[in-house]
Nucleic acid binder design. Structure first.
Lengths: 222, 222
DNA sequence: GATACCATTTTGGGATACCAACCTGGTATC
DNA sequence: GATACCAGGTTGGTATCCCAAAATGGTATC
């Protein structure tokens, strides 16, 4: 795998995740080609990869950036609950809990001066890194992929300070239970956290749907 | 997506799954090109897709058919246990249980005259179709992908009649509990089935490892 | 003014040409 | 005989060309 190919893929993914290309927008291979100064071969490789990540999809013969799909977000929440809880239970059964400190430090790195974008990223990485601790590559990838699919929606969500603070408290509670190897308690907290996040997310987007569409973002109802 | 591209992908996948190309074997884009009468563009697309399915991988600059990896098989079992149980619990909560009859009919379609290959296929489809009933696209895909990754290994497994019969009994017991909406019981049966299958599979392959390597199949130890 | 129709352009899929890196095999040197 | 080295072939990565199909836009017809 070459440099150019990885670059096109990475840059295009970042543009999509950062909503610089809006959900539902059409993509032409020729536009990408010109935008990144690559030829069509790496462009097509990047599109194929991003398709499996769910970030772009086919629209007849062409390509579109995947719209935000509320029904899909709900299904992803169920999916990630299954895999994240499984991963967390594995982690609870491990002797060495020192890696948890690293994750706690991630949470500590955010304070009131931290830019909103960073909170967003750390909030996702918390779940990804927590899943990595399980040592199971497939559970880890599943969580990472799910978070990627949720990423744009979470960025669009209007979250007030209290919701953000509550999420952080929940994260810490999950870590505390995991550190004590209280698998059932940790699993219960994580499930509740995921379900709560999903509800707030879907509610927020459904309420904002009109505004989002006005900004040119395709949002499919649940 | 065109005809040629899908065909190359489908045919190559079938050759790999049928072990017509052995685990660990090197692949060159030019060989595939000639073998299927396609040019490198669809070949490349097929390889990229199969890479995400875990059937082929990179070997430095080139491509190889993924070896059978016993450690990976164990991890996949944990992964599929999480997603299959989650899917089954969803299905148990549904009112309409008529779709279960279709799956039961799949099992009925196999008898002592059925070729081994068909037993193999139905054994996988049972789990895939059961997951589909959950209605959750992501759980379904996760199960389907996991079964794809397990497929070659299960084909190599030396299974005696009793093991095969036991698997069928377990499948029927799972369906019965699901039909009665006994979620906990169904989940327990499914978990036990998956763990048992994994143990038999890994044990069988580990015992046969020498013979498999002699046949030219790369088998990585756990 | 609406609509059916046709020429033009655009687009993605496929094929091919080219290149740089890498492997390979043979040869020259010690 | 061992080894260093070089030439030729092979391979994946990239760029580019061609094509059929689909979209587009303008025009003629009613």
């Amino acid at each position: 795998m070459s440099q150019m190919m990885q670059n096109v893929e990475r840059q295009l993914r970042e543009m999509i995740l950062a909503l610089e290309i809006g959900p539902g927008e059409r993509l032409t291979e020729r536009w990408i080609e010109g935008r990144f100064g690559a030829s069509r071969t790496p462009v097509r490789a990047a599109l194929l990869r991003l398709e499996t990540e769910g970030l772009v999809g086919r629209d007849g013969r062409g390509w579109t950036v995947s719209p935000i799909n509320l029904a899909e977000l709900e299904q992803i929440a169920v999916y990630r609950e299954a895999v994240e809880v499984a991963a967390l239970r594995l982690t609870c059964g491990q002797a060495d809990k020192s890696a948890i400190d690293v994750i706690e430090a991630m949470l500590d790195s955010c304070d009131e001066n931290t830019p909103r974008e960073e909170w967003h990223r750390v909030g996702m990485d918390f779940h990804i890194e927590l899943a990595r601790l399980s040592g199971n590559e497939f559970l880890f990838r599943a969580v990472r992929d799910a978070m990627t699919r949720l990423s744009r929606a979470r960025w669009l969500e209007v979250r007030d300070e209290t919701a953000l603070g509550r999420a952080w408290l929940e994260h810490r509670a999950i870590l505390a239970a995991t550190r004590l190897a209280q698998a059932d308690e940790a699993a219960r907290l994580l499930s509740a956290h995921i379900v709560g996040s999903r509800d707030r997310l879907v509610t927020s987007l459904a309420n904002d749907r009109r505004g989002l569409r006005a900004r040119g973002f395709a949002v499919v109802a649940a």
